[in-house]
Simulated scan of single mutants.
Amino acid sequence: MMIMFICQLLKSRWKQGGKRLLGIDKIPVVRDGERTHMCDEGLYIKNNSNRERMEEIIRAHKLESLGVLAGGIAHDFNNLMAIVMGYIYLALIDLSPEHASRQLLLGAISSIEQTKDLTSRLITFSQGGAPHRKISNIPEIIQKAVSHALKSADIGVDFDFTDDIWSAEVDEYQIRQCFHNITTNAVEAMPEGGKLTISTVNTLLNDDQGLDLKEGAYLKITFADEGIGIPEESLGKVFDPYFTTKEMGSHKGVGLGLAVCYSVLRKHDGYITVESQQGEGTTFILYLPARMDL
Rank of each mutant, 00 (worst) to 15 (best):
W14D: 03
Q16W: 10
K19P: 08
L22Y: 12
V30I: 06
D40K: 07
I57V: 09
E64G: 08
S65K: 11
N78Q: 12
N79K: 11
N79S: 10
M81E: 10
Y87T: 09
D94I: 10
L95S: 09
E98M: 04
R102C: 04
L105K: 01
L106P: 12
A108I: 04
S110R: 13
L118H: 15
I123Y: 00
T124W: 02
F125E: 01
Q127C: 08
G128Y: 00
G129W: 10
H132A: 06
N137W: 12
I141Q: 05
Q143M: 02
S147C: 09
A149R: 10
D158S: 12
T162N: 07
V170R: 01
E172V: 04
N181I: 01
V187G: 00
E188K: 12
G194T: 07
I198H: 04
L205D: 13
N206P: 07
N206A: 05
D208E: 14
Y218N: 07
I221F: 15
A224C: 04
L235H: 15
L235F: 13
P241S: 03
P241A: 00
Y242E: 11
T245Y: 14
E247H: 13
A259K: 00
V260P: 00
C261P: 01
C261I: 02
K267V: 02
G279V: 01
I285R: 05
Y287K: 03
D293S: 10
